[in-house]
């Protein structure tokens, strides 16, 4: 059968066969791996909660509510005219994270929607609930390391580097906000 001489012309074909089999096996293994990787991505029930609707009809001026969006706390706050006027007076250039009043309320003037996650190390700042300390600037106060935010969620003092993050949101109607 296969002594060295007769096997010689066979070798290219043999190589091709081995390579083809090996390549097919490798492709198959890679394809079979995908479900085992993808199963760790958010499941359908989690993805379904990517957007949240919030009824804001009960919020009066100067009040805020806490809600949950994508498993994170969100503050929805209606500012009073006085708070807005006060905030307009602040020179944006002096702020650590320079954002104007309009940038903090991009959808509707008077409505602030931001994440209740301190930009320092992720604690939940106080100030949205009734009777909670609002910090030295009358907005939010993070008790973990003493970050003070103003009523527009802008960082004014303390270790936090950035203003409270504003998630994407729209007004579906006058009383319903869709976050996400």
């Amino acid at each position: 059968m296969a002594d060295a001489q007769t096997a010689q012309p066979d070798i290219p074909r043999r190589d091709f066969l081995y390579i083809a089999t090996g390549a097919f096996g490798a492709v198959g293994t890679a394809a079979a791996l995908w479900p085992f990787i993808n199963q760790m991505n958010p499941a359908a029930n989690v993805r379904a909660l990517a957007k949240t609707e919030v009824d804001v009809s009960a919020i009066e001026e100067g009040m805020a509510i806490k809600t949950i969006w994508q498993s994170k706390p969100v503050f929805v706050k209606r500012l009073t005219a006085a708070e807005i006027a006060e905030a307009e007076k602040v020179d944006v250039a002096t702020l650590r994270d320079k954002q104007t009043v309009a940038e903090r309320m991009p959808v509707k003037r008077g409505w602030l929607v931001n994440l209740g996650v301190c930009t320092h190390l992720g604690c939940v700042p106080l100030g949205a609930g009734q009777g909670e300390p609002k910090g030295d600037y009358g907005g939010f106060f993070c008790p973990c390391h003493g970050s003070h935010y103003d009523p527009l969620g802008r960082i004014r003092r303390g270790p936090a580097p950035l203003n409270l993050e504003i998630p994407p949101y729209t007004f579906k109607s006058d009383t319903v906000i869709e976050i996400g």
Binding site: P35, F36, Q39, A43, V46
Partner: peptide
Amino acid sequence: EHIMRDVNQGWLI
């Protein structure tokens, strides 16, 4: 049933 319906390819696994 969560695995079978919601987890990505959970039914397969």
